[in-house]
Amino acid sequence: MIIIMESSANEAQIKEVIAEIRDAGLKEIRLSGAAKVAIAAIGREQDLNQERIKGLEGVEKLMEIQEPYELVSREHRPEGSIIRIKGVEIGGKALTIMAGPCSVESEDQFRRIALEVKAAGATILRGGSFKWRTSPHAFQGLGLEGLMITKKIKEEVGLLSATEVLDPRQVEAVCQYSDILQVGTVSMQNYPLLREVGKSKMPVILKRGKWATYNEYLLAAEYIMAEGNENIILCERGIRTFVTETRSTIDINAIPYLKEKTHLPIIGDPSHGTGMRHLVPAISRAFIAAGADGLIIETHYDPEHAKTDADQTISTEAFAILMGEIEKIGGAVGRTI
């Protein structure tokens, strides 16, 4: 249940609605909007005295959301959401390009890549300090050392940073060093992690699970928003199908479909979606043409010797060329860089 307040509603009227929600044993979430306050009532809606709430001063209407994901549904925010992080907007007219290595390997490595992706036009630096690996013997990331390098380099170069978090116990530490949390595909239904990320109120990139339906994906986002965190960026990174020649199968349908269903911005990950560096440029162009709000791309000055995901990492030189192509396609669909 979403309660839409009149644009003229004052704080006392809003608090009266919240009191009604709490008295019924439900939880309220105050949602930001362009002109009006919306309040979500979470819990057993049948316990709400809806007629009484309709009659309260300042209430414009009550909305019954048809989808199981009430908070992230576009029904109550048709204009869409823009995530604003220290001067960078995600979901607006300008495309947001995030780039960097799969893993932070050293201070020198991360600095050089940061400088090169910034020069090419990226505004957010990606780089993992904690890594999910199939083998327990593979490189797992630098951990806290990687976080410290991330903070130092992103401040030195002047970029925002995005870092994956694998465990609820890591959230507090990662929040101290990075601007954006990232929940990877294998963690999409790690509900304790989603709740902790939600409580942090930090911007978060939520990647779609490689097995997930659209409803399952949006309900994962709902877990984060149910904790009061509206700063969610969806990321399509491909799904597992019968195709074995590529790492995943890119679901281009997801971009326009999710745009219709949710107000959250969505970006594409052509690196994990293909697993092959020579396919990354074409899929990047396809994402933008389909309406994605941006991209997250793995790049390295020496991709063949990257410690993780070398096969899908493009060179920083190739990334610079790709940025020019993205700008042209973005212009054709009304977007800028």
Rank of each mutant, 00 (worst) to 15 (best):
M1Q: 08
I3V: 06
I3L: 04
S7Q: 07
N10L: 01
N10I: 03
N10W: 06
D23G: 00
K27N: 14
I29T: 07
I29N: 13
R30T: 08
L31H: 04
G33K: 14
G33H: 11
A35R: 15
G43Q: 08
D47T: 04
D47E: 12
N49E: 10
E57K: 15
G58R: 09
Q66V: 06
Y69M: 10
E70A: 12
L71F: 03
P78W: 12
G80Y: 07
I83E: 13
I85Y: 11
T96S: 14
A99S: 06
P101S: 12
C102E: 03
E107L: 15
E107C: 01
A120C: 08
A122K: 09
I124F: 00
R133H: 05
H137G: 00
F139D: 02
G143E: 04
L144C: 00
L144V: 15
M148Q: 15
K151S: 08
E156T: 05
V157T: 04
G158F: 06
S161G: 06
E164S: 05
V165T: 09
D167G: 02
D167T: 08
D167P: 01
R169F: 02
A173D: 11
C175E: 03
Q176E: 15
S178G: 07
D179N: 09
L181S: 09
V183E: 01
G184R: 09
V186P: 00
Q189G: 02
Q189A: 10
Y191H: 15
R195E: 13
E196V: 12
K199Q: 13
K201E: 07
M202D: 02
P203I: 05
G209M: 10
K210I: 06
A212S: 15
Y214G: 00
E227P: 00
E227L: 06
N229E: 11
I233S: 04
L234A: 07
C235P: 01
E236I: 03
R237W: 09
G238N: 11
R240W: 04
F242D: 02
V243N: 15
T244H: 14
R247D: 05
I255Q: 04
Y257L: 15
E260A: 14
K261E: 14
I267H: 10
D269T: 02
D269Y: 04
P270T: 11
R277V: 03
H278V: 08
P281I: 14
A282W: 08
A282F: 10
A286T: 08
F287H: 13
A292V: 09
A292W: 12
G294R: 14
L295W: 09
I296M: 15
I297S: 06
Y301E: 09
P303W: 13
D311C: 07
Q312P: 07
A320G: 03
A320V: 02
A320T: 03
L322H: 06
E327V: 03
G331S: 08
V333A: 04
V333P: 01
G334T: 11
R335H: 07
R335M: 05
